[in-house]
């Protein structure tokens, strides 16, 4: 079947199987920032934005993306760079495997709740697992990222 959606600002028409999941479709399209983690919507690694809302791509059928807007980290280079700077300053990452998912949720948080306080940041980021660093440095980096925009 054919599905047409806007991917990182560009209209794409892709031929898929009805049971294909978005994580696989996006990786086949060359977007390697989208990673498979738990494969059960529990770890946040595969998070992408659909119509600017974070969703897990590992359990989202590509067939449902018709006429939607899909964003991966490749589609927000400036924001990803700002976030990477803040993460670097705080030592908030190590292996980096969870970063693309976190970056997209952080960007969604900025779009939807630009004045988020620490409680809101923590609540919004629940579901993103990081096994390297713990979450204090990440929360500090996210606060700085949001404050930079205000």
């Amino acid at each position: 079947m054919n599905v047409t959606f806007t991917l990182n600002g560009r209209l794409r028409n892709v031929n898929i199987e009805p049971g294909d999941y978005l994580v696989d479709t996006l990786r086949q399209l060359g977007l390697r920032s989208v990673r498979r983690g738990c494969d059960s919507s529990s770890c946040g690694v595969c998070t992408i934005l659909v119509d600017n809302k974070p969703v897990p791509s590992c359990t989202t059928l590509t067939a449902r993306m018709d006429n939607k807007t899909v964003t991966t980290v490749e589609g927000i280079p400036k924001e990803a760079s700002l976030l990477a700077d803040e993460f670097g300053k705080q030592g908030a990452d190590q292996c980096g495997f969870c970063n693309p998912g976190i970056a997209l949720s952080a960007y969604a948080l900025k779009l939807n709740h630009p004045n988020a306080d620490e409680t809101m940041i923590r609540h919004f980021m629940v579901g993103h697992l990081c096994r390297c660093t713990g979450y204090v440095s990440q929360t500090t980096a996210l606060k700085a990222y949001l404050e930079g925009k205000r």
């Binding site: 919507s41 529990s42 974070p54 629940v126 579901g127």
Partner: peptide, 12 residues
């Protein structure tokens, strides 16, 4: 609802 996993999954 707010206690079920994370915002990403709750968007689905």
């Amino acid at each position: 609802a707010a206690q079920i996993v994370g915002v990403g999954l709750r968007n689905v």
